[in-house]
Write a protein that binds this DNA or RNA. Structure first.
Lengths: 231, 231
DNA sequence: CCGATACGAGACGTACTCGTATCGCAAATC
DNA sequence: GATTTGCGATACGAGTACGTCTCGTATCGG
């Protein structure tokens, strides 16, 4: 149990006020090289345990002491790197919310293809890869049977005419369960207590999420503010 | 010591055929206790690294040798436990595919509430907890800003009438991006190459996933059918 | 020039875990 | 009863990583 010791101040940001820092100043290049090395190693995949201090130091061409002079421990370094991540949002066209949404989701799609992004979540799942066979066992035993069963159910619905049949059954299944898995796995702060949630999700998806705007007359009193705030 | 004869296979399942197994037989209770201890420790959370052999042995009240007599290493034990998991599907009412789907998703919801289930995925995310602050930094820096931005976008669409406004904006946002996150994070074998995927997802969700079955005879595919189906 | 600090490199101690080996004892077959 | 195997407990070696410390060198202020 290592508690994060706060030794006086090996802090990342030495206070520029007060004494003008006698002696050799800290190399800004080293600090940059460390952070960039961490990001590079993150992009290469691997689990949290694979990100060793010595590996980071070597990748950055830096001694370990140079790292520990700036961050009290490995954890603080990683948190700091994550915190400095400049997660840029995609440029939204602003023509319609539907178009903006498509852009956002295409951004997600492309980032899903890139290794570097979503490292934290990917790292978590990559941990399964460090235990050979565990991932395969879990997927073949738990994940895939459920996917298959769900796909069969969806295909039954398509054959019965309850569901649209012009979409891929796999995609249709994912559209149905995606939000639920999101809540149960990733958004761990989201509430799951409402027993009406599944029915609401299914019926909303069946009915469609479109509003009345695509028709001409719309005397809706809610004053649609459609200012192009997409910046 | 002549090591040639002994122990070619410490396999988990000693072949019951052939010789009737001289000496003391293996305790079936020990095997059960081991598996149950693993499942219990899984339920308690923690990462893959927290599941140590000695911890398992102690939790099971068993010596380490008893474990290694049955499984060649820790990984095989875990894979075996995962593989023996009796993942039962929920009983489907079968009245309609929609009702079945609601049951399936409610099953997911309830399992999401239970700690024990989905251990492998949870364990992966729990790894973030082993690095204090990392999860918080990632969520506050990456996940939550995107959630917030997406929610603002959805609310803009609701205000503009493009989207339904009778649903919670958070839920609406999750319905839109759920499937995409599913593919980018969990279903890593799913393809993301199709650049039309986001538009197809968004438009399908807007249009609704219902088929023509609930009406008598109207196979028109494009006209949005708006039956009065209030939940 | 001098003290102070930073640098890269790497040795070092600590702690943890895996997987093996050993030690009495227990439970089965021969 | 002798032998063989399993049992829990635990010592052991090997490996890994963290975080500290030392060494010789480099760079700052004074």
């Amino acid at each position: 149990m290592e508690t994060d010791r706060q030794i006086p101040q090996p802090s990342a940001e030495p206070p520029p006020c007060g004494a003008p820092r006698r002696g050799r100043p800290r190399s800004e290049a080293a600090e940059l090289a460390i952070c960039q090395a961490v990001e590079r190693l993150m992009a290469e995949g691997g689990t949290l345990a694979d990100l060793t201090i010595e590996g980071i130091a070597q990748a950055a061409g830096v001694g370990k002491a140079t790292i520990y002079r700036r961050w009290p421990n490995k954890n603080a370094l990683l948190v700091d790197v994550i915190d400095r991540l400049d997660e840029q949002m995609p440029q939204l066209p602003g023509t319609s919310v539907r178009d903006d949404l498509v852009v956002v989701m295409d951004h997600m799609r492309r980032r899903g293809l890139a290794k570097r992004s979503r490292w934290v979540l990917r790292m978590a799942l990559e941990q399964l890869h460090s235990a050979p066979g565990l991932k395969e066992a879990y997927y073949s035993r738990v994940i895939n049977p459920r996917r298959q069963a769900l796909r069969s159910l969806v295909e039954r619905g398509m054959a019965a005419g309850e569901f649209r049949s012009d979409l891929d059954s796999t995609l249709l299944a994912e559209l149905f369960v995606g939000a639920m898995l999101l809540r149960t796995v990733i958004y761990d702060d989201a509430t799951l207590d409402d027993p009406e949630l599944p029915a609401m999700m299914v019926d909303s998806l069946l009915e469609g999420l479109r509003g009345p705007a695509h028709t001409s007359a719309d005397p809706e009193p809610t004053t649609p503010v459609d200012a192009s705030v997409s910046a």
